[in-house]
């Protein structure tokens, strides 16, 4: 299997990263060498193996559905690159 430039542009679109046209060639080369390395896994027959989904032999704890925090709007908005008093501001979405 190999990744072509079109496929990489498609994946970049999915990942919301714009890719500089001048860099597509070197990116294609790098990603293909990485995937070639990854494909060693195909040597192994894993038909009867259960996938490992958690390294801990316990299920994740759940907490009570109660508010443990709150009234920190100012703190949450503090690091936003663009905001007004109550909201994050983004480029216009609806015409």
């Amino acid at each position: 299997m190999s990744l072509d430039k079109e496929k990489i542009k498609h994946v970049a679109k999915l990942a919301r990263i714009s890719v500089d046209e001048a860099k597509v060639d070197s990116l294609t080369k790098d990603l293909n060498s990485i995937f070639k390395f990854i494909e060693q896994l195909n040597e192994l027959n894993t038909d009867k193996v259960e996938p490992l989904t958690s390294i801990l032999n316990q299920s994740l704890r759940s907490r009570k559905d109660e508010i443990s925090d709150g009234k920190i709007r100012e703190k949450i908005l503090k690091n936003s690159p663009k905001k007004n008093e109550e909201f994050f501001v983004v480029p216009k979405v609806v015409e």
Partner: peptide, 30 residues
């Protein structure tokens, strides 16, 4: 690079071949 690898191995049609396979091999390593 790593975001693109990750997005690709999780994308529709490739999940079983990559991510599920890796989870199985991870079991063998453990």
């Amino acid at each position: 690079r790593r975001i693109l690898i990750g997005t690709y191995v999780l994308s529709s049609g490739y999940y079983d071949a990559f991510y599920l396979k890796a989870q199985k091999v991870r079991q063998l390593i453990k």
